[in-house]
Each structure stands twice: as C-alpha cells, then as structure tokens.
Design a protein around this nucleic acid. Structure first.
Lengths: 147, 147
DNA sequence: TTGATAATGATAACCGTTTTCATTACGCGG
DNA sequence: CCGCGTAATGAAAACGGTTATCATTATCAA
C-alpha cells in the first residue's frame, strides 16, 4: 500500500510538472482531479472523478473535471478506456498508448506488452492491402481477487 | 458490384428470417434500416442510417432506427464499432464478434482472424493472474484505395 | 377478413457534455 | 512580498444525441 502511494505521489508530481512546463497553471481543482486519477487502479469517468475529488475538495465544479481531463489527455498522461458499457472513462497511462487488461467485476486494470502482435499485423497487412498504422488491443476477464 | 449486391441481398434475407424466427414482425421501417446496413462496407451511426434509409423510405422515424439497431445487436447480426471519434456506429458482422481493420480515411472495414493471439493471451494470463475471457482487437490504417 | 397487439412516428423528457460569463486566484514582474 | 494581467474557475444555461411516452397504424395468426 505504501508502495502504491509513493508511486502515485510521484506520478502526481510528474503530472503537475508536465502541466507547468506546458504553460498551464497549477490550480487546486486540477490537483484534486489529478490526485484521484493518479492513484486509481481502474478507469473513472467524469462523474466518478467529480464525486471522489469532492470528498477532498468540495468546491470543485464538474466542468473543471471535464476541462482537466481534456488537458491530461492532450498531454497523453491519461488515456480513454473503451468498454462494452461506455467509452468515457480514463485511466493513467505510463507511456502513452498501452494495451489494457480489465477485470469485468471490479474494473481493476493492468497494462501489458503486445509485441507478439507484429507477425499478425504483418500477415493481415499483406492479405488486405492495408497499411496498418495503429492498433487497439484489450483483454477482459477476472482478476486474481475476483475469480 | 453484382457480387456485392447478391451478397447483401442474401444477408438482408437472412436477417429478416432471423427476426421472424425470433418473434419479431417484418415491417417496412425495419427493412429500410436493414437494407442500408446489409450493404454498407463501413460502420454507420443512427443518424447516417436514418438519412440513407429515408432516401428509399421517407416516412421512416429516427426512433425506429434506434429500436431496430437494438434488436439487430441483440441478435448479433450487427456489432458496435469503437473508433477514436465515437463508439456509436454499427457494422454487419458475419459471425458474431470479429476483429476489424478500419481505413482511417474512407472508413471501409474488413474482418480478419486473430488466432495468432492465443499465445499472447496465454502469456498475459500467466503473468497477471487474470482469467482472460474476452478480447478486443482492432487495426487502423489506410486501405488499398486510400493510400 | 378480423382482431389482438407489436411496432410506429411525433413529441417531450432525459442526461451527459459544452458553452457562456462574471468572478476568482495563479504566478510573473517589480 | 505585493499587485496586476489573465488563465482558470463554478454556476447556470444551452446543446445534442438517446430514450420514454402515447395515440395511431399495420402485421400476421386464427
């Protein structure tokens, strides 16, 4: 638990730095949103972030959540998570786009490498005549705790 | 072009049969929506289907488009397509869930097999402790015509 | 052909997101 | 450390896509 907190504190710090060096101000509403996202193990939508962040910073407005999400996504600090029940949730990304493994019960999300995809991409590309430039890969299942 | 039409006519016929045998009535609004989807090579959203179908069947209501999409999806005749710019488009599926290859310029969509995924799933599963039950895979790129 | 009822289209309601705008507070320059 | 320009904020209203309501229509089994 301590490890997680250290990690999320570091992440919060890095995000604030990135915001500053991109010319954005460090405001309390932004920090409130960032605190929540930096330590979440699952994807959250605007309303969920709003509710959680308000516990610490009650004057937060929902609009600021939307605006902060916009900027964090633009800076590639978070990424949108597509899910059968909606596609408006966000999760912290370590290094830009990554592949996700999502627990269908608790929502806990992990990242994984998908290098093994190269041959498949090669094969599909040759077969279809397409030039493949991007790919999305997500796995859904049950995490160790939920099964 | 003739081949495409024959195929889409067959598909239309199959869909209408499936609707009937599931206890749904065969109505003109439904046929109008199905005609459009059965022959489209790219994913369409409700408004696009509405506009296209109205060219042939002008009294069609938008609500019927939504209701028909609901039923076709439930019967697994169409599937939702997730895209960076929205996740409310649908395309005809051949056999339930399949992997998609989408042209970023014209939207033309093809299906491909992803059997090569098995080893990756196995590996991620062992590493993470998850039981993996479902996966999503999509490729984006440029089709032969658009590149 | 008839009748029960599934399905329709028009309208209004709904809800998540965006826009507007007067007010606040961040952070640079002095 | 203070004051000022302006980015950022929160409240409220607007917006747009989807869903619910309801009187009317049309499908299809008997």
């Amino acid at each position: 638990m301590d490890d997680l907190n250290v990690t999320s504190d570091k992440r919060t710090h890095n995000w604030l730095d990135t915001l500053r060096s991109s010319g954005y101000r460090l405001t309390e509403p932004r920090q409130a949103v960032i605190d929540i996202l930096a330590k979440s193990q699952r994807a959250l939508n605007a309303t969920e972030i709003f509710d959680l962040a308000r516990e610490e910073y009650p004057s937060l407005g929902l609009v600021s959540v939307y605006r902060t999400l916009e900027k964090l996504e633009e800076l590639e600090l978070i990424q949108k998570v597509h899910h059968p029940d909606g596609c408006q949730s966000f999760i912290a990304g370590f290094t830009g786009h990554q592949h996700l493994l999502i627990c269908q019960v608790c929502g806990q999300t992990e990242f994984f490498e998908g290098d093994d995809l190269a041959p498949l991409i090669e094969h599909v590309s040759r077969e279809s005549g397409f030039t493949i430039e991007e790919h999305w890969l997500q796995f859904f299942g049950l995490c160790a705790k939920c099964k």
